[in-house]
Amino acid sequence: MSNSRRNFFKQVAAIGAGVAITKPAKATEEFPGYPDSYGILHDTSLCVGCRSCEAACNEVNQLPPPEKPFDDKSVLDKKRRTDDKAYTVVNRYKDRDGEKKPVYRKIQCNHCFEPACASACFVGAFTKTPLGPVIYDPSICVGCRYCIVACPFNVPAFEYDEPLHPRVMKCTMCYPRLLEGKLPGCVKACPVGALTFGKRKDLLSIARERIRKHPDRYIDHIYGEHEMGGTNWLYITGTPFEEVDLRMDLGVTPAPEFTYSALSAVPMVVGLWPVLLTGVYAINKRNQKMAKKEEEEAVLAAIDKTRKEEQAKTETALERAKKEQQKAIDIAVKKALEETSRSKDKEENE
């Protein structure tokens, strides 16, 4: 009986240890992304800057018509970013020497594995879906715009001109279309194959294959494979990434980890502060009490002392008075005796 029980405990301990060993600490664990999630590979070496993707995006998302038509190339003269009227924009980057053709790069939400926006949202309005897209729910959004502050890629935009019902606007990777089995609008519209849609793991193989086959055409790096913990949108390019505004200094740490340690301090403060503060309060209260008690005792002692002194004084005074009285009596008696004897003498003489 006791033996089997000991064995049972041993087993439980072993399982516990096993769990402890196989489960790494939160901070070092990397979320590898949903296994079968989709992604899009953008190959800037193929992009011709025709803005078909922008037009398609505008159409499928029913966004307001643009100021200048989508075939107007003069828009490319100025660097743009995504806003509430455009989920995606293409920018033109001229090569430094000006000999080579210009490079175009498309901007939109990169659909992070562990999105900064979702981590920052205090109502959980952003969801990373297992299919890959990061989607937004305007029905609970308060409009605090912390998601826009948090996004390392400067993607989400706000409807600043909407007075009462502003939404955060960003690419959904055409989530509704994916659910219907359709391609994202931009991918479908791309006439040159600069955008490839597929399972993210397949896209990684395709990208590696292209880099392997044309080492002269590509930089040996797939942007988004690890950046900010990994994104579902991937980029390969022949131009240094920094030159097409893809920051290389973002690191591979997923955004939620930046606030992880600060948030984990909260329960410690909640747990320890009451103990500490109540302790300090109690100590000071006691000190005050002791000080008061000492003061009272001192006062009592002082009163006692003066009373005793008084008493002693009165006693000595009484004694002196008594003595003096006695003296007076003695003198009086003596006088009386003398007088009586004198009168007796007188009587006898008469």
């Binding site: 109502v123 959980g124 309005a125 609970i140």
Partner: peptide, 16 residues
Amino acid sequence: RLPYPFFVSQGVTSVM
């Protein structure tokens, strides 16, 4: 909607 984070949908991963 300022009370939403407490009564409708709690985004507890947020510092906000």
